[in-house]
Amino acid sequence: MLFFKRQWPIIIAFVMGIVMWARFYIPTEQSQTLQDEFMRWARILFGFAAMLGILSLLHHHWNKIKLKRPGFGFSVVTLVAFVIMALTGLLPVSWTWLGFADNLRSSNGPHMYLFEHMFVPMQATMFSVLAFFIASAAFRAFRARSIEATALLIAGCVIMIGRVPVGDWLASVTTVEMGSWGARSLINFPYVTDWLLNIPNAAAQRGIILGVILSQIAISVRIIFGIERTYMGGGD
């Protein structure tokens, strides 16, 4: 039994890892078919996992309500919303008595109505909260505590101005004639922004990308050769 719990998963991971890696270099139709087949398996697995996910959701919230833990009212809302969305999408009954279209899939059906008029606005709201959070985070956290923090602060401010029309406007009103150098802008945020994004930013991003890719190769090798096993729930 211990074999199936310890060694067997590692053997599967090793064989599949090598097969899928080799497949990358083989452009034949059979190799593509193999890939498609495994993708199909993955989708089937995902389907079953989705059921587990729903069970987990229901179990978690039901327990919360049963034990009357703090905030259990929200769990009631979650479960009610879950049931309503599921029923309106699945039940083959007519909703015309509520003024909805008969066809479930139609945009006038109850499911799409709830999706468009409740879900989409709520999603947009969550996203727009970002604007407020950015303002407060910048105000609270952008402090010149050290040299690095100061550099981040200055770069952040320059880019914020340089990326909006105010920056262009500032650059144009401060343009002066400087003899042989031609017309030069004294406060040119867009120019500095451009430089910051193209030189230090791109350089740093590349460094990080290279490091990340190498780490990904390393972690892949560790997993394929069974050196890293934490993700299987096993010991070291």
């Binding site: 697995l45 995902f46 996992a49 996910g53 987990s56 934490t230 299987m232 729930g233 010991g235």
Partner: peptide, 17 residues
């Protein structure tokens, strides 16, 4: 809290172990 059901099952197993 989990967003992906597959990750959920793996995470449960990992923590239990």
């Amino acid at each position: 809290p989990q967003r992906d059901p597959v990750v959920l099952t793996v995470a449960q197993e990992v923590v239990r172990e």
